[in-house]
Nucleic acid binder design. Structure first.
Length: 218
DNA sequence: AACTCGGGGCA
DNA sequence: TGCCCAGAGTT
């Protein structure tokens, strides 16, 4: 496993590749971000961004989602996968915001995860992007990249990956590192076809060298 | 830990 | 066609 120092060095290289990595979900306030992140489960941000401009024009407050018939909300997000459960979750979530949080999006991760459709990953994104609270949201990209680079162990579960990252990365770099790891995972260290041939981290990546050897390229 | 949900994107 | 995708809930 990489040491703290090695982890920082690796993250510096990735930061050079993606100096402006940030959340790509279009939103203009915490509530919109929360909705966008919930919608983004198991589909790409690009797909969500096709729907949200019109959606946010029509639904501005939790009350608007509550007032709309379920079938209508489903129709408004139909082009996104899992739209049925997502529509239900958004209505439930809106109800909870009104009843328990005075219609506001709570700032605490522990409160956010109580909302329908909000898990640890979504809660971390909201707290960090909307409220500037340091957090590392571990999604499939962050997990895969961390394991391939040896920042954490292969057998680690999501919780362990998050703990390891928080331990090895200074708090003031948590949010930036999170977004950089996601960009690196999405655009370069891809799940199916990682671009190891052009990776500046190849020399330090056991997984990458193993892959290139298997392809006879090393 | 394994399974389910689901339409769009892409090879 | 077949496979995968910025996950979460249930069993």
């Amino acid at each position: 496993m990489l040491s703290k120092k090695q982890t920082i060095e690796v993250l510096d290289v990735i930061a050079e590749m993606y100096p402006n990595a940030e959340c790509e979900l279009t939103h203009s306030n915490p509530f919109e971000l929360l909705i966008a992140v919930v919608l983004s489960a198991q589909c790409t941000d690009a797909l969500v961004n096709k729907v949200t401009p019109g959606l946010f024009e029509k639904y501005k407050k939790p009350e608007d989602y509550i007032a709309a018939p379920l079938e209508e909300l489903e129709q408004d997000i139909r082009s996104i996968g899992l739209f049925r459960s997502k529509a239900k979750n958004i209505k439930k979530l809106s109800q909870s915001l009104i009843e328990q949080y005075n219609g506001e999006v709570p700032h605490e991760r522990d409160e956010l995860v109580k909302l329908a459709g909000v898990g640890r990953k979504t809660a971390n994104v909201v707290t960090s992007v909307a409220f500037g609270v340091p957090a590392i949201a571990v999604d499939t990209h962050v997990e895969r990249v961390s394991k391939r680079l040896g920042i954490c162990r292969w057998k680690d579960n999501v919780r362990e990956v998050e703990e390891t990252l928080m331990k090895k990365i200074p708090v003031d770099l948590w949010s930036d590192s999170h977004h950089r790891l996601i960009f690196f995972g999405r655009y370069h260290c891809k799940a199916q076809s990682p671009r190891c041939e052009t990776c500046p981290l190849l020399e330090r990546c056991r997984e990458g060298k193993k892959r290139l050897k298997a392809k006879g390229l090393l």
